[in-house]
Design a protein around this nucleic acid. Sequence first.
RNA 1: GGAGAGGUGGCCGAGCGGCUGAAGGCAGCUGCCUGCUAAGCAGUUGAACGUGUGAGCGUUCCCUGGGUUCGAAUCCCAGCCUCUCCGCCA
Length: 428
Amino acid sequence: MLDLKFVRENADLVRNAVENKNETADVNKVLELDEKRRAIIGEVENLKALRNKVSEQIAIKKKNKEDASEDIAQMKEVGEKIAALDGDLRSVKEALEYRLIRIPNIPHESVPVGRDEESNVTVREWGKIPQFDFKPLPHWEIGEKFDLLDLPAAAKITGSGFYVLKGIGARLERALICFMLDTHIADGFIEVAPPFVANADAMTGCGQLPKLAEDMYQLKDESLYLVPTAEVPVTNLHREEVLSADQLPLYYVAYTPCFRREAGAAGKDTRGTLRVHQFDKVEMVKIVHPDNSYEEHESLLKQAEKIVQMLEIPYRVRLLATGDLSFAAAKCYDIEIWEAGVDKYLEISSVSIYEDFQARRMNCRFRDRDGKIRFVHTLNGSGLALARLTATILENYQTEYGTIVIPEVLRPYMGGLAEITDSEQQKK
RNA sequence: GGAGAGGUGGCCGAGCGGCUGAAGGCAGCUGCCUGCUAAGCAGUUGAACGUGUGAGCGUUCCCUGGGUUCGAAUCCCAGCCUCUCCGCCA
């Protein structure tokens, strides 16, 4: 959420941001409601001041056994007016709030302006795209061949959009989770194991609600949602708090499954485990001082890249254009890894900075060294998303002999296993 | 799920329906003082919103939301959360 005063004073900038982000929020309506709100406040607060003053006099008169019935009658009238105005004020505030939380964050000046992903910019590329003397298999075929991945079984349990990992496949995923968590922890991140559900306040705090309501699973008869990302429970760790300056920066890392309905995404990169309703993810969250948050953003990106590099997977970093930027983000890098089996880059990580947009929605503040209370800045980045990563490893690490090499860094987590050679292996 | 207790400022903890934004203590800050591992004395220390160039002024906030009243931290109702005991349970 943007600061109301900021919107008031920078209406053009905000309108521009709404347009560049392909949003439809009505900024003028916000300004109009704000004006209305301030008019009512002025009126009702004068009446309240009067009531407070006279009520005090009534108390004195009563103490002196004087007659106060005239004052009381008058204040009864004032009280009714106040009640009416308070009612008006509340509905105006609600309408204002409704509009305000639907205004997207403003893109940072370094973000390229553009309608969609066509305008994204490649910041850098890393690694060599592997060349094969044979046609590399896609992960769903590898998974079936070695009995690591069972899509038909998942369909029996849930319907489409889910997957089952078995044997070495399941272990590979678990190995990745442990490897990534351990790596981030060693670099100073605090591990968090949060709930996998969150309430509407938490969802609103991060900006998932109201916009993405259709993309989330909501529990029946409960006001809880399955988390679409660990960002939600972890960033909300400090909602409604005033932190001290020396607590910052806070670095968290959490593993959670992520649940997404992917409404309207049918047909796009949907083979195998490339787009599913539930996937695992290790997510990093930073809560930082506003003065150096963009440096923190760059270092967060580096932290995510580190994982990809350690796994020796070729990737590129893309700076998202305004039109591809999410509702709450001010700036975002995507890391896209090269998947040999499907012959293209796929998004594996989003590293975003929200400035104080989420902090304001969550009311997460800190007391700066000069004693002033300010909103923190929040950031998060996948480090990394699992389903596609597991698929990529199976595809990129296949050999001409039809085997799959296990990346060096994962072997300690796989009981020393260096290569998947046959489907019998996992029964041992 | 059943029974009970409770939710007040950074923390602890008072609070009769009316000078209580809130006693007292701790912690913090600022002075003064003292030559000694820090004590004593005095003062000071919340947030949001509105208004004003500004010092300031005003309004609101004692878990949340309603209600009673001229006036609510204080009374009534509903909800949320925490704790204790019982039951159930991985």
